[in-house]
Design a protein around this nucleic acid. Structure first.
Lengths: 335, 335
DNA sequence: CTGAAAGCGCTTACAG
DNA sequence: CTGAAAGCGCTTACAG
């Protein structure tokens, strides 16, 4: 079934059928429109998108790029929630969703040209990996959680700085004075480094000096079965009463490690996460954390991208979702 | 940059360039191959996939179809894990991944023809929704978790019957005699109905009569804030000491409801889930459940599909992943 | 309002 | 080993 077949049946030319399909109604008589539509209906004709994309140089495909992670790309609940948000608006607007997890950013170009992808959403790219910007000139791109000074593109981020500031401040208010910050590997600039800044400033604003070497623990690869990794955490915890952890998923793992080693949470150690991943509400104890509306973030990213694609218009270059403290059961008030 | 541009630079014809790109080396001299490759390299040429798909009627796209759920398609950790498994092999084999969540199965046809999708993986389709089978004749399809008598396609499932049998049996062995089964809406046949069968047979094999009206609770829509929903669960729990729940995500919610209403788990009520979603290991108490290797399921589905696409060969029509009891902390031994 | 024709960028028999 | 040509199924100026 092609456009030509339809044309033959109706007794008209492919041009006309194409015009009907594309809603160029000012170019076709109502009578013809009806006839064509009827045949399309009856025959169950479905246009070939590849041909259309080839002729149009536009595909209605939106590519979503995830960083490749060791656990597997959707094992990260943050990724899963973002994708949920993106998918919802993409499918509502009748775009198609192509997904790729990449190791090096050059892989994006391929996908870009390959399919005449109409636009991209790129997640958590570390600044220094950002490809030379000119390359993106022709394709609308929306970044999520990307910090980069020269970023001229739309970025949908969160108030990472303010969020972690609130987290540390909460610990401080609850009477904790020796507190630390644990994170996966910290890139600069990045979501994590911004959170660290918030942590640091909260301390200093209370007149508590910040000492990176004592107050921050970077964990390159968390592994609950790796003795050295566990010992580093235990060592780090020793002289502290509270810890801010840069992501809920890591926080939950660390809570388990501490519990396994005799800590009672929050009695012996107070913990605050970040992200308010849906898992955190079921953890034991329920995790006090910083909420960001991850699904909204996905929605906003997709909406902005589609606006760019369709109207060549874009709101602000930098949108920041607010972040709020969610108090649950993992922080204890010290007297 | 097109194949023609490359051809011009090399001083050769598009046919030859195409032959080099496609590895038809027996049709081109080594000298030409080298020259062409050099120019391709230098120019950063990337073939247009749409054109190729149009000419080939094959796209290297694999479509993955999820049922549309209220929470959002990736909010379901089972979906997320399956997708992780699928993505891993698809990207390793250099296919592209297109994702769609659908409400009605007819939407599949669209996607199918639209992009000359090379194959489909379809998740959790309920048997009676299965489209007329002839329609799939030309496109390889692998189903996941689909039960259907006349299913002539490959299905990657789990031993749902055996798994739930083990679950119920475990409760029985631990001294529980009045036990129940809770599930979302039950379709027939389906993953859930098979699990229910396993539950039922475990009971009957111990000489305990099974009474659907008393032993099974179907929850159409779980909502912890809906009083009626909560009351139904509390009512159901009243005269029981243990409950098998057909999915971990539901089990975890129900545990919360019970705890909120004064139950201590497992002292007052023993709970077994199903799926061993990664969340279940962090729940409070840690959830005893039935494990299935969800990522492996995704891997196997993708591998089989690609085999079908490339070699027109397929293993068995029906592959069942094994399911095993994972004992954690949500079941109590009765004396 | 309708149609003939060229073009999108590739592939693939076929001839030489 | 190389190339000319037709075709994949659509779109889009352009002419009438």
């Amino acid at each position: 079934m092609t456009i030509r077949d339809i044309a033959k049946v109706v007794g008209v030319t492919p041009t006309t059928v194409s015009n009907v399909i594309n809603g160029n109604y000012n170019k076709v008589s109502q009578k013809t429109i009806d006839k064509v539509n009827k045949v399309i209906e009856e025959s169950g004709y479905i246009p070939n998108k590849n041909a259309r994309a080839l002729a149009n140089n536009s595909s209605k495909i939106i590519g979503v790029i995830f960083p490749k992670t060791k656990e597997g790309f959707m094992q990260n609940p943050f990724h899963a929630q973002i994708l949920t948000g993106i998918e919802k608006v993409i499918s509502a607007k009748e775009y198609y969703l192509m997904i790729k997890s990449i190791e090096k950013y050059e892989d994006i170009y391929q996908l870009m040209q390959n399919w005449s992808v109409d636009g991209f959403i790129i997640l958590s790219l570390i600044g220094y990996q950002l490809p030379k910007l000119e390359k993106f000139k022709n394709v609308p791109v929306v970044f999520i959680d990307t910090y980069y000074e020269e970023l001229k593109y739309i970025n949908i981020g969160s108030d990472d700085y303010g969020g972690e500031y609130k987290a540390a401040n909460h610990l401080l208010k609850m009477g904790h004075e020796s507190i630390g910050f644990i994170s996966y590997h910290i890139d600069y600039p990045s979501v994590i480094s911004m959170r660290l800044n918030g942590f640091k400033d909260a301390l200093e604003n209370k007149g508590i000096p910040f000492d990176y070497s004592k107050d921050v623990l970077e964990i390159e690869e968390f592994d609950a079965h790796d003795e050295e990794c566990v010992n580093r955490i235990l060592d780090f915890a020793k002289n502290k009463t509270g810890i801010c952890i840069s992501a809920d998923i890591l926080a939950i793992e660390i809570v388990e490690v501490l519990k396994d080693n005799g800590y009672i949470i929050p009695d012996d150690m107070s913990i605050i996460g970040f992200d308010n991943v849906y898992l955190s509400r079921y953890a034991n104890p329920k995790l006090t954390t910083i909420n960001q509306d991850i699904i909204a973030k996905g929605n906003i990213a997709a909406e902005n991208l589609i606006n760019m694609i369709e109207k060549n218009y874009s709101k602000e270059p930098n949108i920041k979702i607010q972040t709020d403290l969610v108090i649950r059961d993992s922080v204890k008030k010290l007297v």
